[in-house]
């Protein structure tokens, strides 16, 4: 669990670095994908809704995105936190899927 969490955080950090440098040069992508947000949402969707790692992960993803953006720190943090909490709520109350693997 801790190992997987750390690995995900390292992947997140490098995705943000790629997003702000290499992805801009990929000509076939008309828009630069926000890989960090995609990863944070994926983690929240795949995680067992009762666990909280997704929420902390979203906060961290938001924080790192804020660091590499120009606006005030906190905007992405709050946006991702709200998305994460909403996903948790929806998956806990309304969705029942067999989780292949718990993160």
């Amino acid at each position: 669990m801790i190992k997987k969490g750390l690995l995900l955080i390292i992947i997140l950090y490098f995705l943000i670095l790629l997003q702000t440098s290499l992805f801009l040069h990929l000509n076939f992508l008309k828009l630069v994908p926000n890989a960090a947000i995609i990863l944070a949402i994926t983690v929240n969707v795949l995680e067992n809704p009762k666990k909280r790692f997704g929420i902390y992960f979203s906060l961290l993803a938001g924080f790192l995105l804020d660091i590499f953006s120009s606006h005030l720190i906190g905007l992405y943090m709050v946006i991702l936190l709200v998305i994460s909490l909403l996903l948790k709520f929806i998956f806990k109350r309304y969705v029942r899927i067999p989780f292949v693997e718990e993160i």
């Binding site: 670095l17 790629l18 702000t20 440098s21 290499l22 801009l24 040069h25 924080f63 790192l64 660091i67 590499f68 005030l72 720190i73 906190g74």
Partner: peptide, 28 residues
């Protein structure tokens, strides 16, 4: 964090910039 945002950002840029520089230059 926002009060000390310059210091926080500077710290993150300090260890991220060398990697970003390599990525940017590879792409160019």
């Amino acid at each position: 964090i926002n009060v000390f945002q310059k210091e926080v950002r500077s710290f993150f840029y300090w260890f991220s910039c060398p990697i970003q520089k390599i990525l940017w230059q590879t792409a160019t």
